[in-house]
Design a protein around this nucleic acid. Sequence first.
DNA 1: ATTATACATTGAACTAGAACAAGAAAAAAT
DNA 2: ATTTTTTCTTGTTCTAGTTCAATGTATAAT
Lengths: 192, 192
Amino acid sequence: MYDLINKNVCKNGDFTQHEIDYFNSILQNKTVAKKTLLLQDGEVCNFEAYILKGCIRKFYIDEHGHEVILQFAVEDWWVSDIASFHEKKPSKLFIETLEDCELLLLTPETKEKLLVEIPKFERIFRLLVQRNLSSMQNRLIGTIAKTAQEKYLEFIKLYPTISQRVAQHHIASYLGMTAEFLSKTRTKLAKQ
Amino acid sequence: MYDLINKNVCKNGDFTQHEIDYFNSILQNKTVAKKTLLLQDGEVCNFEAYILKGCIRKFYIDEHGHEVILQFAVEDWWVSDIASFHEKKPSKLFIETLEDCELLLLTPETKEKLLVEIPKFERIFRLLVQRNLSSMQNRLIGTIAKTAQEKYLEFIKLYPTISQRVAQHHIASYLGMTAEFLSKTRTKLAKQ
DNA sequence: ATTATACATTGAACTAGAACAAGAAAAAAT
DNA sequence: ATTTTTTCTTGTTCTAGTTCAATGTATAAT
């Protein structure tokens, strides 16, 4: 059960078996049904969730009621609103399961304890955030510089499994276009 | 000279005078003239620069030759291509001074040394990246969900000094619109 | 001071994508 | 199996923003 997360986390540092056991011991197991909100606008995010099984989306709702999907997270990914989690301030985001999920959770308390007990984990989480930042940057560039068609092609290339797993209108929202326009883009692509 | 950076870095952790001195001792001072490229597409980024004085832009050039500005950095900010810096892989970005600059630099070697000597710095840099990620996320949301006018108003509200300091067409590039359209948006705003 | 260069404005024509509406198809619930 | 709900497609109209081109205005260089 912990094999995957241990590999995910430990590939970036040397840990003793004892340290790994300790890490595993503080993780909380949680099963969540499809279409459950794990976090809502206004709440403080009290978890960092590692996904053992399932699929989750994180999104923002703007003034006009339009959803902007910030992340799809599947097996072996982490999802959280780090800003809210770390500064204990109300989130502006929603986190919702798209499928039945099995999660391993860190809370502010367990994470802090982990970092105090085994400071080496600071590095692990820094690297995690760093990789996140870098992919967010790439996404920003794409959002600004690419056409709808280019964005879609890049998406299915980058996330072939996710693009099969989630609804098309969610992909459209992730890519910053309307569901209608994505549909038109796809039929146009199919004709080429 | 080190007052500002020490405050910037140390507000997030407790450090002894000795630790601070060590930190300061590994920083390299550098003066750079206006319009100098500190990093070019294809090079490996070998610095994290803290800005004592001046203004810098970080940007990407897409297939069509269009610039996308990812960051304006001024006094008390850090600038680097972290992905390239940490993984020692060629950058896709450019970093250019917009004014004469005074910088304090970390190199991969000095930073690594710092982290080994004083592991507490891991946390400092994690928090730095985390804040970065969070502002990048807000920017992505704005880029997708806001109109040109809203983007511009948010920008001058968020960065009043920067908006006075850099060329308008650079702001346009940062906001993901053409210089012409920003100009039109501004005249329209002025008439209201 | 004068010329050259970079920057900002304005207008006209164009286009990628949005909005709205309505129907088709698929999936889920009874 | 059939109804309900959700998702996807297609067409039409509309608009925010682009492109291109021209002119004006600062700033910098000699």
